[in-house]
Nucleic acid binder design. Structure first.
Lengths: 409, 409
DNA sequence: CCTGTCTTTGTGTAAAACTACAAAGATAGG
DNA sequence: CCTATCTTTGTAGTTTTACACAAAGACAGG
C-alpha cells in the first residue's frame, strides 16, 4: 500500500463503510464514536476484540467506567486537543486493550472519535498518517449528523421550555408531542437547575453537553440552557441500584464538570419528584426556590440541594410576601438593633449566632471568639433589652424567623 | 304630709323637677342616674352633700371607685333585684355617706337609680314608701330617654359595623359621619373582640352594656354585639396614667364582667393600634386571628391577647394556606407517626413536648412524667427513626412548625 | 412457651451550663 | 480628669446534660 494513494479520498455511503475501510487499512478493529462517546459505527469481520469494545458495541455507547478511566489518565484531554493520532496503553481494570485514537474535527469542534484496537501493535507510522485522512472522511458524515441533531435538539429545547413555562399543559398532548419528537419521558422526574457564575458561553455549553451525554446513572431526559442556568429534567436510571445512587450520581455529575472542565456551578437546586408532566413547571419553580434560598442563606443551606430538604425555609418566600403586605416591627429586635447602633455593640448578631448554634453556649462562644461568660452576659443583656425569654421556644422561634426574614434583600 | 296624698301623681317637665320634688319630700339631696350610673338629674338647694356626690355631679357620672365599692359590698346587686328602697351604710373610703337607693324599673329592666343622701338618717318609712312612687314617675322619663338612646345606639352599631366590614372606607367621610352621629373618635384605637361560650342573649347583652358604660379608664368608642362576640373599638383614656394602665384596664374589664355577672368570655383578641379609620377592618381581622389562634393553641397562647404579641403564630394562617396549596409530607414526622402507630408509642408527642419545653430535658421529662433517661432514650429514638438532628436549630424549627401546623383543623 | 428486641429506670462519670461574685478594662458624660 | 456604668474575663460551686452500661419489665413472633 503506497503512501501516495489515499484510500479515503472517495465517496463513502456510510460511516460503517469508513470503519470497514480503516479496518482494512490498519488490519485492526475500528469504532467510530460521536463527541459524547455514543457508538456511530464499527468495523465488522474483526478477529480479535477486547471487553471494552464488546461492551461499547452492545450498549451502543462506551461504558462510563471506560470513559472515566480515559479521563483520569488524561487521554481524552490529549485526543481532544491534538490533531495527531494518540496511542493509548491498555487499561486492564476496565477491559481496555492498547488503542490508537484520533479526534474527528470540524475546525475547532470535536465531532467524534475514531478508535483502533491495536493489541498487537501492528500499526506503523504510515497507517497513522492515513488515520488523519480517515478522520477527514468521517468529518463530512458527522457534520451531516450534527446538523440533524442540532435540529432535533432545537425541537427538544422548545418542547422542554414550553413545559417549564406553562402552568397546565395537557397531559396527553404532552405525551404525544414527546413521542413525535422521539423523546421517551421518564415515569418519575425532577427538574434540576444548575446556576453558573456567568452566562454559559459556547465552550462551556459544549462541555455541559458532553457531560450530560456521557452521564449514565442519571437519565437526563431533557435539558435547556438559559443565560447562566442549565435546566434539566432528571430521573434515576433503571434498576434499584440507580434509584438508590441517584443523589450521589447528581453530585458526581457536578464533580465531573469540575474535574474535566473546571466548570463549577455556583448554585444547585432540585424540585420535587413528580409523575405527571403537568408538574414540570412546578418542579422547576421549586428548583428555583432552592437556588434563591441558597443564595440568601448560603451557610445555613450549604449541602442542601433539593426542595424537600429545605425544611421550614420553604415557607420563607411566602412569609416575606406576607410581611411586606403587612409590615409589623418586631419590638424586641428593634430595641436590640437600636441598642447596637447607639452603643455600637453586637447584641442582635450575638443572638443570631446563639440561635444558629441551637442555643449552645459553648459552640456559639467559639463562633464569636469570646469567653463563654461573655456570651452569657450578652445573652442576659439580650433578654433584658429585648424583653425576650431565651428559655421559651416560641419566643426563640419568633426571633429566629425574624432574623431569617431580615436577611432577605 | 299625709300618706294619702301622692306628690308624684302629676306631670313632671323634667327629671330635674322630679329630683327636686323628692328632695323636698325627704329633705335630703337626691341624684337620679341611668342604668350605667351616668348622672341624669340632681336636686339643687341641698345644704349638705358628700365627696362622692360632688364627684358624681362634677364628672356627670358616678366615679368608678364608688361603683366598684358598691358592687363589692353587694349593694348594687341588691338594688337591682329588689323593688324596695335599699339602705346603704356609709363607705368612707370612697367618700360615700349613708344613702337610700331604689331602682327605676320598667317591668324587669332596670332603667336607672334614685339615690338619696341620708347622712342624718332623717328618712322614715313613709318617705321610703313615697320613693317607690317617685321611681314610678321617673320611669316614664327614662323610658323616653331609652328609646332615644336605642335609636342612637342603632346608628352607632350600623356605623361601626360598616367600618368593621368595609376594607377601604373614605377617611374624611368616616369622620364626618362620626361627627354627625355625635361620636368622638379616638386618635388611636384598636379593635378588641371578646368571644363568649354561647350567643349573647338579652340578659348578657345588658350586663355587657352596663360594664361598657361603667368602665372609665378605657374608652370604648364603639361596640357591636354579633352572635357570641362583643366587638369594641377601644382606646386608652386621656393622660399618661391611662395610657400605661390600658392593658391592665382591659383585663379589669373582663374581671368585672366575671365578678359582677359571672359572664366570662371564652376567648379574647385585640388587633393592632391604628390612627386612621381605614384600618378598623384590619384591626378587627387581626383580633379575629388572635381568637382563632387562641382556639387552636390554647395552652401555648394562654395569656396572649394582642396581635402584636402573637410572635410567629401570626404567620401560621398564611402557612396553612400555603401548605394546603402545596402539600408536602414531612418525611421525618411521617416516619415518627408511623412508628407510633405500629408500636403504639408516643415519639411524636414526646418530641412535641420536648420542643415545647425549649429542648430542656428535665422540664420535658417532668411534663411527661418519665425519668430523664427515659426521655433521653426516646429522643435518641426520635433522632434515629425520624432522621432528625435535635442539635440543629433549623431542623428543630422545621419540626416545631410542622407540629404546630398539624394542630390545625 | 421461649427468645430477642424494645423500653424504662437506675448508677456513675465527664462535660457543659447556670449562678454568683470579683476584678479589671472600656466607654460615655459631666 | 473623674466617675459611673458597661463590658469582658476569671474563679468557684451547683445543676443539668450527655453518654455508657446494667438490670429488669414489656412485648411480639416463632
Amino acid at each position: 500500500m503506497s503512501v501516495d494513494h489515499n484510500p479515503f479520498d472517495r465517496h463513502f455511503d456510510s460511516l460503517e463503510s469508513i470503519a470497514d475501510t480503516i479496518s482494512e487499512v490498519v488490519q485492526c478493529p475500528v469504532t467510530i464514536e460521536d463527541a459524547s462517546h455514543k457508538l456511530l459505527a464499527y468495523s465488522s469481520h474483526d478477529p480479535e476484540t477486547d471487553p471494552a469494545r464488546i461492551a461499547t458495541i452492545i450498549g451502543r455507547r462506551v461504558p462510563e467506567n471506560v470513559i472515566s478511566a480515559l479521563w483520569k489518565e488524561g487521554i481524552i484531554q490529549q485526543i481532544m486537543t491534538s490533531h495527531e493520532p494518540i496511542r493509548i496503553s491498555q487499561i486492564s481494570e476496565v477491559g481496555l486493550g492498547d488503542r490508537i485514537a484520533i479526534a474527528i474535527r470540524n475546525n475547532q469542534d470535536v465531532l467524534g472519535y475514531i478508535y483502533i484496537l491495536d493489541n498487537n501493535q501492528r500499526t506503523n507510522e504510515t497507517s497513522l498518517q492515513l488515520l488523519q485522512q480517515a478522520a477527514q472522511a468521517a468529518r463530512t458524515k458527522l457534520v451531516q449528523l450534527q446538523t440533524q441533531n442540532r435540529k432535533q435538539e432545537q425541537h427538544h429545547h422548545d418542547f422542554f421550555w414550553h413545559l417549564l413555562t406553562h402552568k397546565n399543559p395537557s397531559e396527553p398532548e404532552t405525551k404525544e408531542r414527546a413521542s413525535q419528537l422521539g423523546i421517551s419521558l421518564p415515569p418519575r422526574y425532577q427538574v434540576i437547575v444548575l446556576e453558573f457564575e456567568t452566562d454559559i458561553n459556547e465552550k462551556l455549553n459544549q462541555q455541559i453537553q458532553y457531560t450530560i451525554r456521557t452521564v449514565q446513572q442519571i437519565r437526563i431526559a431533557l435539558h435547556v440552557i438559559h443565560n447562566n442556568r442549565l435546566i434539566m429534567m432528571c430521573a434515576p436510571g433503571v434498576g434499584k441500584h440507580a434509584e438508590l445512587q441517584y443523589k450521589d450520581e447528581c453530585s458526581k455529575f457536578i464533580t465531573q464538570l469540575k474535574l474535566r472542565f473546571g466548570a463549577v456551578p455556583v448554585r444547585r437546586g432540585g424540585g420535587l419528584f413528580y409523575e405527571q408532566y403537568v408538574f414540570v413547571e412546578k418542579s422547576y419553580q421549586e428548583a428555583l426556590v432552592v437556588i434563591q434560598m441558597g443564595n440568601t442563606y448560603p451557610e445555613a443551606l450549604s449541602g442542601i440541594y433539593d426542595y424537600n430538604e429545605l425544611g421550614y425555609y420553604r415557607y420563607l418566600p411566602t412569609l416575606v410576601v406576607d410581611r411586606e403586605r403587612k409590615p409589623i416591627i418586631n419590638e424586641s429586635l428593634h430595641r436590640l438593633r437600636q441598642y447596637d447602633e447607639e452603643h455600637n455593640s453586637d447584641l442582635s448578631y450575638t443572638l443570631e449566632i446563639f440561635l444558629n448554634q441551637d442555643s449552645n453556649v459553648k459552640k456559639a462562644a467559639e463562633v464569636l471568639h469570646v469567653h463563654t461568660n461573655t456570651l452569657m452576659y450578652r445573652l442576659k443583656r439580650v433578654m433584658e433589652i429585648g424583653d425576650i425569654d431565651l428559655n421559651n421556644m416560641d419566643q426563640k422561634v419568633t426571633m429566629y424567623l425574624e432574623l431569617k426574614l431580615n436577611k432577605w434583600k
